[in-house]
Design a protein around this nucleic acid. Structure first.
Lengths: 205, 205
DNA sequence: CCGGTTTCTGACCGCATGGCCAATTTTTAG
DNA sequence: CTAAAAATTGGCCATGCGGTCAGAAACCGG
């Protein structure tokens, strides 16, 4: 299936379908069992195929996981971007929308968000290097910092370390995920509004 | 070593020493390799003993890990408590001291904090039950909420969800740990002050 | 010096994992 | 229809895991 020549051939219909199916089943498996227990065997079982098929389409488990992360991140991005861009006028409104949209996305994409967080917390190595992705994730932090800097430039925001603020906001948002599982009835709209209020007060000039 | 009778005998000198040594080596191993890679074999290697010794003194790995968590949490508690109690007069000052002491503790106990966070994030199961500890940890959240409620009662703080605020504060603090590794020169005093400022503004009436 | 107890070793067990591959079935194209 | 290519199977592998155990060694009171 894989051409060894320089030019990459268009993936066959089956190839795309299988890849998508396997990625989807990986998400299901991680959501159901947690990242550490989501083995290739489990993923294969859910797809009703043999493990070998996964190896056939993905070089190794890392590539599969990277694909899962990419998929979720892409969905996330296309949800967030237009909502934030719509508020270009005010950094304060951008920040509010950033936080609220983020939480709202979690409400409508619970499974995917859970899986993302699970992978990121379990795969991220303290010692740094083999960190498979995190670049895509880290870039999210950069965008957040940009909003903050813009607000400081326009005078809407007070002076503060944009780094510390950005990390705190991200952490506060990420902290929602575990609570969704612990308490499925959690009112996420209210939660998002609370969070937005907290960081509105924290940033305002 | 273990008496089967009801009355527990005083642990021998060797027993206490070994237990302490093993716990210490477990901390080293987790700090160096990360929780998932800190196997009994690795821990034993660092202690220059055979795996069997660990099994001899600890029923299973869970008990060892529970001991590690307990040790770090105890040190943390005895560091924090007096500092916070000293500010009994004002909830706002208590909160500030809570945040700054927390970050300061991280500065002086980097390894132990790293290990704690590593264990907690990796061991916490989404599906809940086998959650070995987390009670001790969760109780920290309660104390934080108490400070917040007190501030609301005295009118120092505005109205907000103490739960959301407490989780956000904890998350913001916990978010420091990974950055310590990524950037060992991080100015934690400044970081703590920034964080305290953020949540001072967010809570003030 | 002895005999029992505590401590410790190193080999071993069963299990699950990620990955590999020869053989087979299915699809595709001439 | 046929033969090459793509897709799939199922068994196999080495590895590392947590945990166990018989027996050796060290220790200690009498």
């Amino acid at each position: 299936m894989r051409s060894e020549t320089g030019e990459r051939e268009a993936p066959s219909f089956i190839e795309s379908a299988r890849r998508a199916q396997i990625v989807e089943c990986a998400i299901d498996a991680i959501a159901a069992l947690g990242y550490p227990r989501a083995s290739l065997a489990q993923i294969a079982r859910r797809a009703r195929i043999s493990k070998g098929v996964i190896s056939y389409y993905f070089a190794d488990k890392d590539e599969l996981i990277r694909q899962v992360v990419h998929e979720v991140l892409t969905a996330f991005d296309s949800y967030m971007r237009p909502r934030i861009e719509a508020e270009r006028g005010s950094a304060a409104r951008m920040l509010r929308v950033y936080i609220e949209s983020n939480v709202a996305f979690m409400a409508t994409h619970r499974k995917h968000v859970l899986v993302l967080v699970d992978i990121l917390t379990h795969e991220r190595r303290f010692d740094g290097k083999p960190l498979i992705d995190a670049k895509e994730y880290e870039s999210g932090l950069m965008e957040l910092e940009q909003i903050l800097r813009r607000g400081q430039r326009t005078g809407e925001f007070r002076r503060f370390s944009t780094r510390v603020m950005a990390v705190s906001i991200r952490q506060a948002i990420d902290g929602v995920a575990p609570q969704i599982v612990a308490n499925p009835n959690l009112d996420l709209d209210a939660y998002g509004a609370e969070l937005a209020e907290i960081f509105d007060l924290a940033t305002r000039a």
